[in-house]
């Protein structure tokens, strides 16, 4: 690394550590640019699978059983980080918390707990295969060793924002949830794939449950196109699309119907069985 120029004033020199960013606010866009480098993929073999709370886990044995069997079968081919959503219990705890006047940061922690509980359920079903539930801090610091010891691990889809959750633009619902949490960790590790298992085939032009009409299936779409369509409902959180636009590695995600046997495994093999959203 090149040595930075000497400090301009006498008062600064004493306790600085020389670096390319020394004495910067880190907020001047021109000054921070010189340190930009291509970002490496830490775990290029990682596959992230998201199991929706409401769409998969809340459906109980009928849905979870086959999904777990499928994950068990596909583990030999792919190393998996399985992330779970919170489902209906999060809606209940949000409802109570909102009624009590609690802030978004507290609500985020409460909802996250439910996603964690669903993770414990899925991990327990796969325990005999050597799969464990890992806390956020282990995912952030020891994922490599765990996925070297086991072909798959389970964690909480919610990111560890908790009290530090952003207030949302409108209202008080925590904006970083399972879908965006999973995307953030997938991109940070430079994962090979991110597959979202839901209870619909993918993205449709309209939601028949809400709007009626005849929905059209969208099999492949860019983030910009999808944002331009301004659809009333999407099977993934809108924030994922915003994050994709800035992502360093994960340039596409696939949303598949996890209730259709074989879909998750096919998507992990790179087959196109749902909606692919690309940056």
């Amino acid at each position: 690394m090149t040595t930075p120029p000497p400090p301009p004033g006498p008062s600064f020199a004493v306790k600085d550590v020389p670096s390319a960013l020394m004495r910067q606010t880190l907020l001047d866009r021109e000054l921070v640019r010189p340190i930009d480098r291509p970002v490496m993929r830490l775990l290029p073999w990682l596959n992230v699978v998201v199991l929706g709370g409401r769409s998969i886990i809340d459906r109980g044995r009928e849905a979870v059983g086959p999904v777990v069997d499928e994950l068990r079968a596909v583990m030999s081919e792919h190393r998996l980080l399985i992330l779970t959503g919170p489902g209906i219990r999060a809606r209940h705890v949000l409802s109570v918390g909102l009624d009590l006047g609690l802030p978004t940061g507290v609500l985020a922690g409460l909802a996250s707990t439910e996603a964690e509980q669903n993770g414990h359920l899925v991990a327990a079903l796969l325990a005999a295969e050597g799969v464990s539930y890992l806390q956020h801090t282990t995912i952030a610091h020891q994922l490599a060793v765990h996925l070297s010891a086991s072909r798959a691990v389970v964690s909480n889809g919610y990111p560890p924002y908790g009290l530090y959750e952003f207030p949302p633009e409108v209202g008080k619902i925590p904006p970083h949830r399972t879908d965006s949490g999973a995307f953030l960790i997938a991109d940070a590790y430079g994962a090979a794939r991110a597959v979202y298992a839901k209870d619909v085939d993918g993205v449709f032009t309209s939601d028949p449950a809400v709007e009626g009409g005849t929905p059209e299936f969208i099999s492949r779409v860019s983030v910009a196109e999808l944002l331009g369509m301004n659809l009333a409902t999407l099977p993934v959180d809108l924030m994922v699309l915003e994050l994709m636009a800035r992502a360093k590695h994960v340039r596409e995600i696939q949303i598949v119907n996890g209730l259709v046997p074989g879909n998750i495994a096919k998507a992990l093999r790179g087959e196109h069985v749902g909606t692919i959203i690309h940056a």
Binding site: I35, P159, L163, L184, A188
Partner: peptide, 28 residues
């Protein structure tokens, strides 16, 4: 935020650092 920190539009510096962290404590 650890590994779940949002990435900036340009570069790799964490966009939400100690100003944001302290402010969010005050807000929550």
């Amino acid at each position: 935020y650890d590994m779940w920190q949002q990435v900036p539009a340009e570069g790799v510096l964490p966009p939400y650092r100690t100003d944001a962290g302290c402010y969010l404590v005050a807000e929550v």
